[in-house]
């Protein structure tokens, strides 16, 4: 599991290069997210295009990643698969994270409603 980190406009774009975030890589994900988001402010967008599946352990890791970002930063999500969207909907975590259909949608949406 690798993360990539780029700046797109004023948004920190983190690509998650793994096809699943599950019990097996949850701790590794939290550690790598801490490294990727350290000192970052403003909008942080996690691109989940490659992630087909997240289980409840992986969801816990995504929440842990949110807690690690600076107080002034937001953690948003884009490109949720059917299974990931279902997970976020059933746990109501889609009310905690701002969810975008795609990275482009997220960049165009701006930070007004963040």
């Amino acid at each position: 599991m690798e993360l990539s980190c780029d700046m797109r406009n004023d948004v920190v774009l983190i690509g998650v290069h793994a096809n699943r975030i599950d019990a097996g890589i949850a701790l590794q994900f939290i550690t790598k997210m801490a490294e990727a988001t350290k000192g970052k402010t403003g909008r942080i967008l996690m691109d989940l295009a490659e992630v087909e599946f997240i289980d409840s352990s992986g969801l816990g890791a995504v929440v842990a990643a949110l807690k690690q970002v600076d107080k002034g930063a937001s953690l948003e999500l884009a490109n949720l698969s059917v299974a990931v969207r279902k997970l976020f909907s059933l746990t109501k975590m889609d009310t905690v994270f701002r969810v975008h259909p795609s990275v482009e949608d997220a960049l165009q949406a701006g930070s007004a409603a963040a």
């Binding site: 816990g60 929440v63 842990a64 949110l66 807690k67 059933l90 905690v96």
Partner: peptide
């Protein structure tokens, strides 16, 4: 204070 677990049986 957000929960990081306790979702499994609910799902």
């Amino acid at each position: 204070d957000l929960p990081e677990g306790g979702f499994g049986w609910h799902l």
